[in-house]
């Protein structure tokens, strides 16, 4: 499509737009479809952004945290704990290493064994909480040194269950993006159908216009502008309703876990403004293709 053609199709021309009679159901169909699709696209976008944030947060938080477990005979626990803490403090990338107190360990076990658990009477391993710095520490190197110097130490850097969580969040984001693409495709298909119906209904008008010397791009432009404008208006309404729906979602909170904080944050609130523009672009392309095909067939 040349620049001149695009200009002809886009530039408002009230006279040209009047030559095509207003059509009832195709106009309403385009408005409704664009509105509904924009509404869904807002939610898909919100889900995509939220799952992206979630993946980043989980990856970041879990990457920084690790646990060292000292499984040793009761008389060696204290010595191995000290040795492990010394090694950890010497390890580059470890920001903080702290042995959990008896009370803290009892609190961790309380959900399973009750608050009155006599921790001292049980062979409960000593736990050391590790906070990584920026950049992080070399887990493999640390593991090797611990094996050599603290035989009862087992380093758990949460890789085992961190990876599936982060993968799940990334998959969710990919699904949301695919949904946005599908929404765009469905919008294009519906608008193509509506444009085809409008073009077929106006075959006589097109014939008259050709007989008086109208070029195809002039005729196509009248349809393209009309459908693009309808899609833009419909998508804008759908976007506003979708954003209102997102605003009504609960705020992010620790108690709510994953199901809260699905809305937009900060500049993310500006992103849905792109949806009506994309809707209009999709409508423009779909109507242009439909008009070109129909006008060729009507020759």
């Amino acid at each position: 499509m040349s620049k001149g053609t695009i200009r002809t199709l886009i530039m408002a021309d009230s006279q040209a737009d009047r030559v095509v009679p207003p059509s009832g159901f195709t106009a309403q169909l385009t408005l409704f479809v664009s509105g509904a699709m924009a509404f869904l696209a807002v939610f898909a976008l919100a889900l995509s952004l939220a799952s992206g944030r979630l993946a980043d947060r989980w990856a970041s938080e879990l990457a920084r945290a690790a646990t060292l477990r000292i499984n040793a005979p009761a008389d060696q626990v204290a010595a191995q704990t000290r040795a492990a803490l010394t090694i950890l403090r010497q390890t580059p990338g470890v920001a903080e290493a702290r042995a959990l107190t008896r009370e803290e360990q009892a609190a961790l076990l309380a959900p399973w064994f009750g608050a009155d658990l006599p921790v001292d009477a049980l062979p409960v391993p000593q736990l050391i909480e590790i906070r990584g710095g920026e950049p992080g520490y070399d887990a493999q190197g640390l593991r090797l040194r611990l094996v050599a110097e603290v035989p009862g130490a087992v380093l758990d850097d949460h890789t085992r269950w961190r990876a599936p969580l982060v993968d799940a969040a990334h998959s969710l984001r990919r699904l949301a993006l695919v949904s946005i693409l599908l929404i765009g495709g469905a919008t294009a298909a519906m608008i193509t159908l509506a444009a085809n119906a409008a073009l077929a209904a106006n075959a006589q008008v097109i014939e008259v216009l050709r007989l008086v010397g109208a070029r195809d791009r002039y005729i196509a432009g009248a349809f393209v502008r009309r459908f693009t404008l309808r899609a833009l208006i419909g998508a804008a309404v759908g976007m506003v309703l979708g954003m209102a729906g997102v605003m009504l979602l609960p705020e992010a909170s620790d108690e709510g876990g994953f199901l809260t904080g699905l809305g937009f944050q900060g500049l993310g609130w500006l992103l849905p403004l792109v949806i009506p523009v994309l809707g209009a672009v999709v409508a423009f392309a779909a109507t242009w293709a439909a008009a070109r095909r129909t006008l060729k067939e009507l020759t």
Binding site: V19, V208, L209, V212, G213, A214, R215, Y218
Partner: peptide, 8 residues
């Protein structure tokens, strides 16, 4: 005026 309109 249609011929005028369509010819711009």
């Amino acid at each position: 005026a249609l011929p005028l309109t369509v010819s711009g």
